[in-house]
Simulated scan of single mutants.
Amino acid sequence: MAFELPELGYAYDALEPNIDARTMEIHHGKHHNGYTTKLNGAIAGTDLEGKSIEDILGNLDMSNGAVRNNGGGFYNHSLFWSVMNPNDKGRLSGELKDAIDAAFGSFDAFKDAFSKAAATQFGSGWAWLCVHPGGKVEVCSTPNQDNPLMPGVTCGGTPILGIDVWEHAYYLNYQNRRPDYIEAFFNVINWNEVESRYAAGK
C-alpha cells in the first residue's frame, strides 16, 4: 500500500489567528502532498515498499537522500498536524506533566527549552519533545526533514511533539518573526494527543 496524505481532522482556517488558513492550505495540500508523492516514488519497487514509515526511518540508509528527505517530510508533517487541535486540546497533566517537571523543573522551563530549540535551529528544520524508554523526555532539534527516529541523529527517543520551523510553515503570516510563530504554536497544541503518544512511547 502506498502512503497517503493524511486528513487534517479540522478545516484549514481552524487554527486562526495562530496559523492562517492560506499557510495551512499550502503547507498541507502542496508541501506535505509533495513529500508523500515523492516518498512513494522513492520506495516503489524496493524492499521498503509495504513497510511502515517508522520501520523505514528507523532503519534508514542515511545516504539515501530521496527516502531520508521525503520519508522524513511525510512522517514529520503527519505528526505535526496531529499535535495541533483548535478545540479539544486538553491540558498538560498526568505522567507527561510529571516527566516534564522531572526533566525541566516546570512547564515554563520546558516551554523555554522547546522554544529555544525551535528558534535557534539554523535554517530549516524541526524542534522536538521526545520520550525515551522508561518515560524520560528530552527536547532537541534536527535540520531539514531529519527526525529522532533516524539512525545517528543526535537526539534519540520517539517524537511526541514537533514544530516545523521551515519558513513555509509561518512566513506568510509571521515573515521573519519565528519566535512569534513559536509562541502562537503553544496556543494550539493538542495535549490529549501528545499525552497519548507519550504513553505509547515510554
Rank of each mutant, 00 (worst) to 15 (best):
M1L: 10
P6T: 15
L8Y: 05
D13F: 11
D13A: 14
E16R: 07
P17L: 05
N18K: 09
I19G: 00
D20F: 09
D20M: 07
A21K: 06
M24N: 03
E25V: 04
I26S: 04
I26G: 03
I26Q: 07
I26P: 00
I26V: 13
K30C: 00
K30I: 10
H32A: 14
G34T: 15
T37S: 04
K38S: 08
L39C: 09
L39Q: 09
N40G: 02
N40H: 05
G41T: 12
I43M: 11
G45C: 10
D47W: 12
D47F: 13
E49T: 14
G50P: 03
S52H: 07
E54P: 01
D55P: 04
L57V: 09
L60W: 09
N64Y: 13
G65V: 14
N70H: 11
G71H: 14
G72R: 13
G73R: 04
F74V: 15
N76P: 02
H77M: 13
S78W: 13
S78A: 15
V83C: 03
P86V: 12
D88C: 03
G90N: 04
S93I: 03
S93V: 04
G94D: 01
G94A: 03
E95I: 01
E95A: 02
E95G: 00
L96V: 03
K97N: 00
D98S: 03
D98H: 01
D101L: 08
A102D: 08
A103E: 05
S106E: 02
S106T: 06
S106F: 06
F107K: 04
A109Q: 07
F110I: 02
F110W: 04
D112F: 12
S115K: 11
S115H: 12
K116F: 10
A117I: 10
F122P: 00
F122H: 03
F122S: 03
S124H: 12
S124D: 11
W126Y: 15
W126I: 15
C130D: 07
H132L: 14
G134K: 14
G135E: 14
C140R: 06
L149N: 00
L149A: 01
L149M: 05
P151I: 08
T154I: 11
G156S: 06
T158C: 02
P159C: 05
I160E: 00
I163Q: 02
E167Y: 08
H168V: 13
H168N: 08
A169W: 12
Y171A: 04
L172T: 04
N173W: 15
Y174N: 09
Y174E: 10
Q175F: 13
Q175Y: 13
N176G: 08
N176R: 14
N176T: 15
P179I: 11
A184K: 13
N187A: 12
N187I: 09
N192S: 08
E193Y: 12
V194T: 08
R197V: 09
A199N: 15
A199E: 15
A200S: 06
